[in-house]
């Protein structure tokens, strides 16, 4: 092992993996909440839908489109002042969270909106005919009926997030990207780059695997 990867400090590697998982999971929770809210707002305020409202629709759809248009590496720099204001530094995994969430929530928001659009209009009409409140329609019909699509969307988003954490690593966010870049690439220790790549691929596969199983389990169509 030591011959194959001469430059690797195994404790550092484990620590970096932990940081990557920490950033991914916390940012994923933030993305889930913010993205679901954004997706719901776009869907509900769209013409002909439950809260048909041009102003809210234009604003949310506009914000989502703008944030999705900004490349992630640039987004990190753009919100540096916010990060510093919140955490006093822009270094470390926690400081990377705002950028990660702002980068992926609009993406997930779109996926949520697409998933909601797939919900059969007739089912919503049936719920209205039963005298359901808007909140009942949102939580018990819209979100429940689109759950498999929401979960598979979240899987896709999680994998994109793992990639984002590696990008954030290049400006010192910590994690496997950081380790591969500063200890591997800049010092010409390619074995570190290889092992970090391998670990990231494994993490992605695990996320995909879990996502597929959950989607399959809840899909009763």
């Amino acid at each position: 092992m030591a011959n194959l990867f001469p430059n690797i400090n195994w404790m550092d590697l484990i620590f970096a993996t932990g940081e990557t998982l920490y950033m991914t999971l916390v940012a994923l929770v933030g993305t889930l909440i913010l993205g679901t809210i954004l997706g719901l707002l776009i869907y509900l305020s769209a013409p002909g839908n439950l809260w048909d409202n041009k102003v809210i629709y234009s604003i949310t759809a506009g914000v989502v489109n703008i944030f999705r248009a900004i490349p992630f590496i640039i987004l990190i720099f753009l919100i540096l002042p916010l990060t510093v204001f919140l955490f006093g530094t822009f270094r470390g995994p926690t400081a990377a969270l705002p950028a990660l969430i702002l980068g992926s929530a609009p993406f997930y928001g779109r996926l949520v909106e697409i998933a909601l659009r797939e919900v059969d209009h007739g089912v919503i009409e049936a719920a209205k005919a039963m005298g359901a409140k808007s909140s009942t329609i949102i939580f018990k019909v819209l979100l429940k009926e689109s759950l498999p699509a929401l979960v598979s969307g979240l899987t896709v988003t999680a994998i994109a997030l793992i990639g984002y954490t590696a990008v954030a690593g290049s400006i010192g966010a910590g994690g496997l990207g950081d380790y591969a870049y500063f200890y591997g690439f800049t010092r010409r220790n390619m074995d570190i780059v290889y092992i970090c790549t391998l670990l990231i691929v494994i993490i992605v596969f695990v996320f995909q695997f879990i996502g597929d199983i959950v989607t399959k389990k809840i899909d009763k169509r």
Binding site: V123, A127, E145
Partner: peptide
Amino acid sequence: IGMIFQHFNLLWSRTVEENIAFPLEI
């Protein structure tokens, strides 16, 4: 006022009994 539809409009994520219980929940 009950209503039934051409394409049934059931919630696919709910079982038969859960579908029938839905208006009662409401």
